[in-house]
């Protein structure tokens, strides 16, 4: 079983590497990722938001909705842990099966 998994994992890795063959090289300043959406953040964020830290500006404003989702995720996790572990010995189904 473990051999099969190993082979599967190696194949998966090769597949991922196959995908990287067409990618721009590491740190290429002319890659699409660096030339399409992001320059606008760098050039305009300070002017529009008065926040020199671009990460904060994008995090809090441009993609603020994502960040709200992120906060929600951790709230959800806290609630889930609370649901599972606080007073978890109540009336449980099939407990003593």
């Amino acid at each position: 079983m473990k051999t099969i998994i190993l082979i599967f994992v190696v194949l998966m890795g090769l597949f991922l590497l196959y995908g990287t063959m067409d990618m721009p090289g590491w740190g290429d300043p002319n890659s699409p990722a660096s030339t399409w959406v992001s320059p606008r953040y760098i050039e305009q964020a300070l002017e529009k938001t008065e926040t020199p830290n671009l990460v904060t500006a994008v995090l809090g404003d441009y993609r603020g909705y994502d960040t709200m989702g992120e906060t929600t995720v951790i709230f959800t996790a806290a609630i889930a842990c609370a649901l599972l572990l606080r007073g978890a010995t109540g009336n449980r189904r099939k407990e003593d099966e």
């Binding site: 300043p29 990722a33 959406v37 992001s38 760098i42 300070l46 500006a57 994008v58 995090l59 994502d66």
Partner: peptide
Amino acid sequence: IRATDYLNPLPHV
């Protein structure tokens, strides 16, 4: 400010 002078912030976000 030139875009080429700063790292891309989006992946960090």
